[in-house]
Design a protein around this nucleic acid. Structure first.
Lengths: 356, 356
DNA sequence: AGCGATATTGACAGCGCTATCACGTGGTTG
DNA sequence: CAACCACGTGATAGCGCTGTCAATATCGCT
């Protein structure tokens, strides 16, 4: 036998329908698309629902309609505040819409990512946002099986799963190094932490630029698998000073590292930028107000999240998305910390890069 | 008439059961509690499920069982990295469990919070984590209607909804100001941004301490409704310097502000801590590596998230939660930026506070 | 008035899973 | 040896909602 007694206080569509004097299906329609119900009934249903304190049952809705309004979002880290900006954009875009977000973090592990994708699949999501382009073949297969709009964010690459929005980390770093070279720096160090795929690509951009300039020297590269932090910036810089005491500039793959380098320079009484120039990556808010203000590569993270979400919604709701791969570009925010040797400080930020 | 043809590729419990030669209900049992199925069938079901690529339908499960494994989490902001630490704790605790997290941000609005709670209710969550103690009466009612374990985090207060974990912001700030007073500071400024309930309580702690010391002066308080940022720290400090040029210490309700004050001091060639002492709040990672290292009030955010999640799980799974209101305390991390006048720098951090 | 076109409404069946109870088996007990 | 229990398994009947299509009401037009 099946269930027995229905809990007395329970309010279903049926109860609302009974009170409003209409059929359940009409109440259902009212909640999904009020315009298709005649004004008279509309009012009756509305007040009946309010009186009874009706709350729709999402599970029943999902089961009957064979779809959900859940958007799965997969990011590598909650700690790295790069992603909090992206997330903010995503949440802002879905704000007020009927979609809800299911967020999970992969901890920079493709196996975790695979597991989480499988988990998302059980929800039959309406859309998915995933970070980067380095999914496993299995991971791609799972995403494809979900049969919903998918946006890959943070990077660009060949062969998108569906849609894509990001920028070239290789180019962005190349531009930053080019800026330092233009400022007269020759012994430019590279500091990187965590070394996830995006940092790896920044390293690639660094190597390209240095090799083209004929200035490449592996001793100038100091990296660690440990996550980025200000303290780590200080230690990586200390390592660099041991390996290459003649370094005249430091590119940091993250702004936290750059801040740590600045502090370490203050501790060692190294003048910035006179003795050592500093460039960071991401252009976090504090970079502009540091003393000296710190040069960084601005990436449009909030917009990335916002547009990724918008692309998903457009796709779901049948509005054709023509630009399926979006390059958001970047800007090198040139500040005091990378001032040309013996030059005067600029009155305001100078900018170079793409898309501005 | 109802639906017509079943999609051919669709794999349901029934298909797995047919292939394994058992009844659907046995397959259902296998997925929920493998131990209750005999080893022979267990293997057959397992391989059948794998062969067919079976993916359980969560909506059907939720509808039939009348419950979900969704934990609703409500935080005020995604940008404020205070919450990313809490979140990390929450995600870590639920990692590998069968629960999934539904995260939403209220943007510091109780009306938003109410709307989101209503939304959560539709999901019939298994548990809820909400921020702070300032829910509206309506909001509390909604949470109670969800009839599931609830933990309020970040603060302590009378009359918890269900469970509670946090610390006293009043006491924490009081301790920080007491520290400054002990260091010989007399004209201690208060800088606050956003002015959410928790910052308001820190302000209260500041006022209590200053009044007891007979040093209270409203001109020393500078606040703004704008969100916290490093740049904002600089401007608030500039305002303070205009209002009270004789200020000898600054308490910042957030670490970002403290960093901004440090930079502004560097810009104005004000010696820290000799001319002005600086104390922040939250003890973000960068505080310890700044030059001079910045005193701050450490709050146990990661642990808060972790334990809140654990309390929820314990409650759901019938393990009695005896400590239903947990005070996590705080620590004043005494660093160079609040060194006693004309004293030598300490070799390492000194700590004062509760629970350490 | 009569016609088809359009807007509203309802009946029915079923989405994929699980709660509940019933039943069989084999072992233990008095 | 009947009575009992624990265990594994299955049959049945929904969980609360919506897709589908048919039925009815309403309207504009010739």
């Amino acid at each position: 036998m099946g269930r027995k007694h229905i809990k007395p206080g329970k309010v279903r569509l049926t109860e609302v329908a009974a009170l409003a004097g209409v059929s359940p299906i009409t109440v259902s329609r009212f909640f999904r698309n009020p315009d298709t119900v005649s004004p008279g009934r509309r009012l009756r249903i509305e007040s009946a629902a309010k009186d009874l304190g009706y709350v729709p049952n999402l599970a029943a809705r999902a089961l009957a309609s064979q779809r959900t309004e859940v958007i799965g979002v997969l990011i590598p880290s909650l700690t790295n505040n790069v992603f909090s900006d992206v997330l903010r954009g995503i949440y802002d875009a879905f704000e007020g819409s009927r979609y809800s977000i299911q967020l999970a973090n992969t901890r920079y592990s493709v196996l975790q990512e695979e597991r989480l994708l499988r988990l998302f699949l059980m929800q039959k999501p309406a859309g998915m946002i995933v970070t980067g382009v380095d999914q496993t073949a299995e991971g791609r297969a799972i995403v494809q099986a979900a049969d919903c709009p998918v946006v890959q964010i943070m990077e660009l690459g060949p062969d998108p799963i569906d849609m894509m929005i990001g920028f070239s980390h290789v180019d962005a770093c190349f531009a930053a190094i080019s800026h330092l070279l233009a400022q007269g720096c020759r012994r430019i160090g590279f500091l990187g932490a965590r070394m996830d795929p995006r940092v790896q690509r920044r390293l690639q951009g660094y190597q390209n630029a240095m090799k083209i300039a004929g200035l490449f020297d592996p001793r100038l590269i100091v990296t660690t698998a440990v996550p980025t932090s200000t303290t780590m910036g200080g230690s990586l810089f200390s390592d660099l000073m041991l390996r290459a005491p003649d370094v005249d500039a430091v590119f940091c793959a993250n702004d936290d590292l750059a801040l740590g380098v600045l502090f370490e320079c203050q501790r060692r009484h190294i003048a910035v930028p006179e003795q050592i120039a500093i460039v960071g990556f991401n252009d976090m808010e504090f970079m502009a107000s540091a003393v000296p203000s710190l040069t960084s590569v601005r990436t449009n993270r909030y917009e990335m999240g916002l547009r990724a979400a918008t692309m998903i919604m457009d796709e779901i709701e049948g509005r054709p998305v023509t630009e399926r791969v979006v390059d958001l570009g970047f800007q090198v925010m040139e500040r005091q910390s990378s001032q040309q040797r013996h030059a005067v400080a600029p009155a305001a930020d100078r900018v170079s890069g793409t898309k501005w």
